[in-house]
Structure formats: C-alpha cells, structure tokens
Amino acid sequence: MISSITRHASNAKFADGHSVQVIKDESLGHCRTPLYVRGAVGKVVSYIGSYKNPEDLAYGGSGLPESPLYWVEFNLAELWVNYSGDPTDTLQVEVYEHWLRKLAQES
C-alpha cells in the first residue's frame, strides 16, 4: 500500500492501470530510468507528480518543462527468465513519461 499524496494529473498522459512499455533506448548521460526495465511491459500504478527532467538538470539545464512521473509496476516473473520467487512478486519503479509508451488495453 502506497500512502496517498496529492496528485494533480492534468498534464499526465497515462491513467492508473494503463499497460505501458518502457522505451528501449540508449541514454548518453545521466538518466533515472534503470537499464533493466527498458523494453519491459508494466502497468501504471499511479501518477506521482511532475518534476524537473533529471536528464536536463544533470547538465546545468533548467529541467523544464517538468515531466510527469509515474509508479510503474512490473511482475518479477515476467521481468526475469527463471525467476525463482513467487509468481505474484512485483517491482515498482518511478519512470518519467517520456520513457513510456502506451500499449493497447487488455480486454
């Protein structure tokens, strides 16, 4: 259970429950999207807020415009081949919107 925080989702592209894929891209410098989730499919848990873009901030930029940040949940058994834990084990990561693309909704 994540404690609730005030969220203003007006500028957020993805809603809770959306299936998303983390963009499988190289990053040339500072970046807060871990390599091990790039290309992985997960689900938006919720929008957290919008924050200055760390990829710009790291090099003296303003970090603006702020980028929407989400909690994205991955199933560990889907993330790793031969995952040894329980099939319900999950991983939750903070991912900026520009690193996500929406997948078609499962029916």
Partner: peptide, 14 residues
C-alpha cells in the same frame, strides 16, 4: 509464501 512481495526501486523523486 502467500504474502505478496513488492520491491520498490527508488529511482527518481521519491
């Protein structure tokens, strides 16, 4: 066994 485990990676602003 029955309890869910959630690993939380503190990657950005939280």
């Amino acid at each position: 066994e029955k309890a869910n485990l959630r690993v939380v990676d503190s990657t950005a602003d939280c």
